[in-house]
Design a protein around this nucleic acid. Structure first.
Lengths: 186, 186
DNA sequence: ATAGATCGTGAAGCATCATTCACCTTACTG
DNA sequence: CAGTAAGGTGAATGATGCTTCACGATCTAT
């Protein structure tokens, strides 16, 4: 009944190295990088990756889930700017969307995270934090009468997941401009 | 200086068969169907496809370009409903968008065509026809004061290219609803 | 009908990848 | 410090898919 044996210390370290390298590679090249490439970047052989993650899909999912963290941070910062400094909620929402899209344009991991969010709006590491902050932000905008009353967090995720992240900056900006006028209250 | 020799009659027929099969396969399975699968569907060996198209990319491009035809037809029909029957231009525009998105949800060829349109708004077979019709429709809506004054055909293509065509119908509808309120004049 | 080019064939070549496993190495335990 | 299980290795396997090419079949101009 005794626990079979604890995980080795170096294994924990190496797992972190693998995650870091995978995150870097996916950020730069998208989730279709080869396991070989991730392994090389991490300084290991491919077999090692499979000692930690049963399949490539699992590794990618772990990385994608973790990359929500930065998004959640940004959402919370936006929320506190509204709550503490009185910045207009609608402005913070559109600012958040803008930053997110610009980030995703360079960061394939965030882009993949967006798709995952839209497909299954849960089960992503730190997703709850982001959702909670955005929810309060949206609520504040509703109270203020800025935002169309039926707008929800799911809508935000939906819009983000369809952003033209592979288009040049001026196209992304135009897309946002078309969108945002549809968000204001009637 | 005499033309080397005309193309053989059967070769012309077979090229059409290949195009038809490729269109069918790409419509159903997307542009990533294998050349083998297209060849089988067409009733030929792979080598034959390469006698007609130097690379898979060329074959796919040809199919995608051709699949604009149906879109152009729809655009022209919408235009004539407005010009001849006095149907509101804005309604025809949103109707066009709605139909196009629903089509793309099932037809991978149209979806690919949309991406191609947004990337390079020219050089697609029948693209000019669609653009001309939509342009007149947009112009009519502007005259009527329904549509935001800065809205253009490029915007329409941009919006369409970002539609969530792989989401279920109610999500697509919601996405459209969010968009369309942003299109009306201020 | 015949020559001669065009066309069609499909197995083979070549790449790319995910995944496995028999074998060595290393960290931990007693 | 020795024994042992966990950890790491990387060549091999098998799948998939684009592309080529030497050969035989077919069409067409004469």
């Amino acid at each position: 009944m005794s626990s079979p044996r604890p995980q080795r210390a170096d294994a924990v370290r190496n797992r972190a190295k693998i995650m870091a390298a995978a995150h870097e590679q996916i950020t730069a090249n998208g989730p279709e990088v080869s396991m070989e490439q991730i392994a090389t970047a991490a300084g290991f052989a491919v077999g090692t990756l499979y000692k930690h993650f049963p399949t490539k899909t699992d590794l990618v999912a772990a990385v994608v889930a973790a990359s929500i963290t930065a998004v959640a941070d940004d959402a919370e910062a936006a929320l506190s700017r509204t709550c503490d400094d009185g910045s207009p909620a609608l402005e913070e929402i559109t600012g958040f969307l803008t930053r997110l899209i610009d980030t995703a344009a360079h960061d394939h991991a965030v882009k993949a995270a967006a798709r995952a969010l839209a497909a299954d709006p849960a089960a992503l590491h730190d997703e709850a934090r982001a959702t909670a902050a955005l929810d309060r932000l949206i609520h504040a905008a509703h109270q203020h009468g800025d935002l169309r009353p039926d707008f929800s967090v799911d809508d935000l995720y939906l819009l983000f997941s369809t952003a033209p992240t592979d288009q040049p900056a001026h196209v992304r900006a135009r897309w946002l401009a078309l969108l945002i006028t549809g968000l204001t209250a009637r």
